[in-house]
Design a protein around this nucleic acid. Structure first.
Lengths: 143, 143
DNA sequence: GTATTTACTTGTATTTTGCAAGTGCAAAAG
DNA sequence: CTTTTGCACTTGCAAAATACAAGTAAATAC
């Protein structure tokens, strides 16, 4: 599995030990911006992640306490949601999205882009509280 | 050299095509947060980047228009500074730094962390304008 | 003139990633 | 109640990226 090896005491380096790859943040993006939550959902994203990489990253994110597995009904029997630690990554995803939009003038959803330009902090607060609520709804025993 | 291959139209994915590795953002961090600007400076950072990787990333960042080479006096005869496109990555570095601080409770400079908590947008504006000025001072013919 | 530093390049070992294929399990179909 | 289908992975191998060691040429430093 992708190992988290701390290269230095620098917090930027520490973050890159987690997110310094092409896939980890895409899974979080799928959850945060596209409402996805199953293995199959992630697999269908346009970037075409391989199954073994996806398995690996989900395991890593779960072990690191950013994602939690929960049982679901229907064909997919497992879902993934952000934990309280996981939602703290939302600002990073948002900055990546904004940079991509500015350099590539491609669109996120237009509404979201507009909302972000108007009140970035507010959008982040909203997304965070939404995913915290999802987390709590899957967690029988909130602390 | 590290090639930038666009995997999808998604702006997050687009950003990760640039920064989805363990080293690129560390170079930008060194410039933005530590005032470094030569090959030797970057080499001495705690994470221990290999010379060939550093060469590769500097070339990529220059080709992509995020960094500019400029001549300097003294031992190092080449310096690197952020371009106008390059400074747009500062918010990403800052978010990475803040996440690292929050999860690892390690220190950036304490003053910087405190300033960021008080007025993140202001700090980003300051850093941006500082590096834009550096860029202009090395650029004989601003457009 | 010799040593050192800078800015790389080259070569090789190791690690990570991409892709194809296969496995085990549960639900749906016949 | 078999068979099929889809999901959630796991395994194996090839290709690419990265780490580490060594070497090179040009510009100082002494």
């Amino acid at each position: 599995m992708k190992e988290i090896k701390k290269r230095s005491e620098c917090p930027v380096s520490f973050s890159l030990d987690f997110f310094g790859d092409k896939w980890t943040l895409l899974i979080i993006r799928d959850i945060v911006l596209h409402g996805k939550h199953t293995f199959g959902d992630f697999l269908q994203s346009a970037e075409g992640i391989a199954t073994n990489i996806l398995t690996d990253r989900l395991k890593m994110l779960e072990e690191q306490g950013l994602l939690m597995k929960y049982p679901v009904a229907g064909k997919a029997r497992v879902g993934y949601c952000l934990t309280e630690k996981g939602v703290t990554t939302i600002p990073i995803v948002i900055e990546m999205a904004l940079w991509g939009v500015s350099q590539n003038n491609s669109d996120l959803k237009k509404e979201l882009t507009a909302a972000l330009r108007k009140d970035k902090a507010g959008v982040i607060r909203q997304l965070t509280s939404h995913h915290i609520q999802l987390y709590r709804s899957h967690n029988p025993m909130p602390h």
